[in-house]
Design a protein around this nucleic acid. Sequence first.
RNA 1: GCCCUGGUGGUGGAAUUGGUAGACACGCAGGACUUAAAAUCCUGUUCGCCGCAACGCGAGUGCGGGUUCAAUUCCCGCCUGGGGCACCA
Length: 1137
Amino acid sequence: MEYRFRDIEKKWQQHWEKTQAYKVSNTSEKPKFYVLDMFPYPSGAGLHVGHPLGYIASDIYARFKRLKGFNVLHPMGYDAFGLPAEQYAIEHGVHPAISTEQNINNFRKQMDNIGFCFDWSRELRTSDPAYYKWTQWIFLQLFKSWFNPKANKAESITTLIGIFENEGSQAEEFTAADWKNFTEKRKQEILMGHRLAYCGIGEVNWCEALGTVLANDEVVNGVSERGGYPVVKKKLRQWYLRITDYADRLLEGLETVEFSDAMKEMQTNWIGKSIGAEIQFPLSISPRRGEEMEEIGAKLKRPGFGYPDYKVDSEMSFENAKRMRREPTEAESILWSALRSKQTGYKFRRQHPVENYIADFICLDVWLAIEVDGGYHTTVEQKEADDIRDSRLKELGFTTLRFTNEEVINKIDIVVETIQQKATELKKTLPPKTIGGPGPSPLQGEAGERVTVFTTRPDTIFGVDFMVVAPEHELIEKIVPANHKLPVEEYITYVKSRSERERIAEKKITGCFTGAYALNPFNGREIPIWISEYVLAGYGTGAIMGVPCGDERDHKFAKHFNIPITNIIGNYYNGEEANATKDAILENSDFLNGMVMRDAIGVVIGRLEDREIGERKVNYKMRDAAFSRQRYWGEPFPIQWKDGVAIPLPESELPLLLPEVDSYSPGPDGEGPLANIPEWVARELETNTMPGYAGSSWYFLRYMDPDNKQEFCNRKVSDYWNQVDLYIGGTEHAVGHLLYSRMWTKCLYDLGLIGFDEPYKKLMNQGMIQGSSRFIYRISWLGVFKPDFDFSKLPIILVSKNFRNSWVHGEKESIEKINDEVQKVLKNAGITSMHTFSISELHVDVNIVDGVELDIEAFKKWRNGEYSNAEFILEDGSVYAPLSPGEPARPSHSDGGLGVRSTYICGVETEKMSKSKFNTVNPDTLVEKYGADTFRMYEMFLGPVEQSKPWDTKGIEGVHRFLKKLWRLFYDEVKGKIWNDGKATDAELKVLHKTIKKIEEDTERFSFNTAVSAFMICVNELSDLKCYKKEILEPLVIMLTPYAPHIAAELYAELAGGEVINASFPKFEAKYVAESSKEYPVSINGKVRTNITISLDVSQQEVETIALANETVQKWLEGKTPKKIIFVKGKMINIVI
RNA sequence: GCCCUGGUGGUGGAAUUGGUAGACACGCAGGACUUAAAAUCCUGUUCGCCGCAACGCGAGUGCGGGUUCAAUUCCCGCCUGGGGCACCA
């Protein structure tokens, strides 16, 4: 009886479906185990051999755990919303729901073929209203929550409202009373700045021609990848998730989960926590002075980029400021107590340095300086000094008010009123502050008066030779003097056409001087402000301080633009490349001179904080997650916009169904397609939809309780199943999906909806299976065609790989050979008008190539006979021409045997597996040919699951042979059943138990490839021993169940009766594999020279004696005495001479 | 550019904690069975040198250094394939 895998597999798959063998209950005495695969997107291309890799791995583990006595949840479903279906809809007019449904059916059919143990009664689809109802519901919970930093967790927004009502907000500068007086709209605006799901303004890549928003990788060199149309940045209202508030918890959580170190590192880097300082650099030229400014700028004749022409003892003014703050005059004290804490409605600072002056009081919001004159201001010299100071302050854009001591002391009310009036007046003349909304851009606030940078190295403050501001920084348009406008605008136009990716990756140094200067806050040194594409508005503050001697990128920038470099680290800087050391002793660094850099960091921060020009700051590279898409095929937001205020729909109205649309094209102004529906717009509903990761951020919870109509998941059920014990998927989800779903889980936990705050306890990464592409080489005709030329007469000539290669390398012989052939063919075809050609490389379907040999006959039938008349120049130079009429069909090379066996050799390259590259291998054809069990085991046998590798079908035969060999331990072709009840020998038991141990260990650590090898070794050894004993075979079959469930079920049913999937994993017994001696490798100076078998229980002394007595050892010793003998018990012996 | 990851025979890979490099399988070569083929079985197979063979010798885990009695494994520098870089999923 032969191994009839097709019958067996069909039989058992039907049996399992009929008996609902994989249906899992939410209540069980057994311990639970949750195995989950990352949500697949049902693409139109169907499954290729890369997809099942992870599913087979999880299936093996799930089945293994079941044999080990666990109640195993192993569900599957579909991340069914997504762009490809929408793109297909735009191109073909098919509703995404329809194409998605078809794709899912196809996926399901393919998966069923492979014999997975999924509990299909729990299948999910994110596009199903019964599912997305709860996605919308969770979104509303996020919308109605804020992150309370004190509690370090999310809370209902009502607790925040309570705080505002009672205390107001210090950070946002309003009192409880203010809050009560705010309009509802204003209150909502403020609350929006705290909601976990919030609305803001964000920039997208907008392609007018395609009428759509593009992903970064769809933008190449400033134009769309599809079509090559121009792309610009467009600001759109967007939803965001406040994931940055969870940054610290996402970092801490990594310590509690079993992810690979690489994965943890990637997430840590993505979050990008860095500790440093935010430093404010005052601007040298006030943006308020407009046109007048450049004249001054020009007049000032700044000496290049070097030091300004006045020198300040900054330590002096700094010390003065501090001392004077400590010892204020009476008048100053009185005025300060009237101005402090925003009593006037304006924020004043006292003894604040402006360049090298120190203003008594200053309000940076309205550019107002207040001077209180003591008696000594009456001298002529002092008067002059005051005038210079006033005019400089005026130059900088400040208005100065002067009061005498007497005025302040006696008429404080009038003084304060005057100040208030002036401030209010100034405020009106100020350019309107841009209200950017609560978007993620950090560029708002008091732009226009100073540049704020974030740095992890405040100790290098005196090495700042330039600043780089993001070209899209709002400050730019305000600070650029007219004579610099043109080049700056040109540069900004260039940057606008670039995707973020391109900007970051650009090796070429680009940038543009803005014509404006900032001042070093400590010594007033002028610092030129540049813009460059490598600084992004979204990172940090959107501006960096350039320290060329300490940072490689800054160094290159300075060198490229000839910006003089200040060396603050002495010998550590060699003038050639930057040195990021923290160990150098600072030079040219004012009050830091002589200090070790790492110590200076804290000192600088202390001074920054003292002088209120900066502060210690934790910065995250991670930005809030953009959570809306201007697309159709996604979850609608349950939000209405009334008078610019977002109103959540009542939960009773969920789900908000995705409406039908006539066209899937975007709406006006880059809005989503939903904006095209009059009724939708009339209801003032949000026209964006949610992104792909919305549904996949919580799906693991829905699997636990998929049919619940009352809640997203019953708490008791989620308490039972708890975390996913094993999550399998690719590293491509390392930072996207995994971080989002971790954040959602933490939110749900904070809100008391689930009982754990990390979704995935253990993560296993599966590698990608790449495609191995094959190429053919076709002669492409170049030449002049007559107008009436009949193109069908043009012959198709294909040359084998080596001919093409040598042709490319210009080898005479090949060129002549190809030329001859070409001329002959052209002549036969009666073509004389052209004679030149090139050779182009074309993908050919890997399925009609055996290794690298093209199956010529199959190729001729490929693509409806496109190449049926092609002529082939084969590897040996012979020509394979089309049949002349009446000539009998020739066998292709693979039919072998007849005539000369020359072949057409294809080119090979490893690429992504993709339909368009004709390198996809469909699992269906392999399952059809070899069976699901062979396919499963072969995918595992290919190598470690977590490693990427190109697919090669060669080798599947070996696994198939193994299963046939296993079968022959049970059945003989002639005799039929051959197993017996005989008592197993020691040798047989040893083979069995060695295998049990290996399979158990390997399965537990996901080393499935070595487990398959162990099965092969076991079957080989049992075959050699001619062991057909039930005592051995039965445990073997149980062990095999996770890997090859069909054949195991069949053999087990015959052998023992019953269902193997409910059996128990065999127990390993050490006594059967115990060894008493070991064949030790004996090395001389680390090189193995011989082997000696020695009992395992002898001492080092005895081993040395035995080893030295050995003949080979004697020979190598050449009479010398060994210096040292190393003996590692059970491992090896090494003799050092 | 930045972050992560891989590189071992003709091929996929093994070597679990620094201890016999190449398990297992493919392919290839030779042989057995057969009229023949398929299927199956047996033998050999890292490279080089010597040799009828056995034995033996040398080199060898991307490249160049280092640590160690001993390195595929640890350290430093480089080359190179793959994944990610925020709207592909």
